[in-house]
Amino acid sequence: MRDRLSFYILRESPIHRMNPLTKLTLVFSLILLAFLGPVEWLAILLFTTVILPLSFLAHVGREFLSATARLLLPVIGFLFVMQSIFLPGGGTALVQVWVLDITLENVNIAFVNATRILTMISSFLLLLLTTHPSALMSDLARRGVPGPISYTVTSTLQILPQMQVKAATIMDAQRARGLETQGNLMKRIRALLPLVAPLVFGSLVDVEERAIAIEARAFNSPRQKTSLVEIDDRPIDRRIRWGLILVVIFLLGSRLWLK
């Protein structure tokens, strides 16, 4: 059994205590500012002065850095190198590789693009490390996201690991029977079917009984649903959300003004 269903790490911190919607607002504010802010280097500034310090404030700094390194460095590294080399135009040649000029302008653009992606994805990462998915969903459900949608998300979080375990079992069983998962393209395509078919049909057939089971538990009741878990939404959370919205409006407005 996988005990970690997501990136979430249970710790005691002001960021963990923050309401999920507040954190979600923070994420979207950071993304908007990184992409549409008044200056291009705002993205890297936000990463170093907001996201990174917050991750340490949340006592997940180490995990944040390692997840960033694992998930993001390859992506933005590749992006940076590719764009530096292949983007057209730019006058100030730095180096010449084969027939391509690497120009200062293009390195600059590549850097801005890479840091924007860094800020976008890492701010999500900060949310995920400090928020249990079911807390996020029940808070959103309380605020008007339809109950079945939050059911669907949390249910996927449970079903997926089950299916991955089953998939691994099937994979091992088929390999033991001599199925080749290496070799040429044809062989690998042919390998897909016996791996996938039992898994897919098995899990689809279960849908009917699970639908009966949740209907038997009043899933479709028109009554106003309640929630067992209580999720804090303190006055400070509301103030932070409004503050963030104002900052975003101010900075986006200042961009228009500067134009």
Binding site: Y151, S155, T156, M163, V200, V207
Partner: peptide, 15 residues
């Protein structure tokens, strides 16, 4: 959206 749909969606995502 009926109950079958709501239960199918998680399975489909997992697929």
């Amino acid at each position: 959206f009926n109950t079958m749909t709501w239960v199918l969606i998680p399975v489909a995502i997992a697929i």
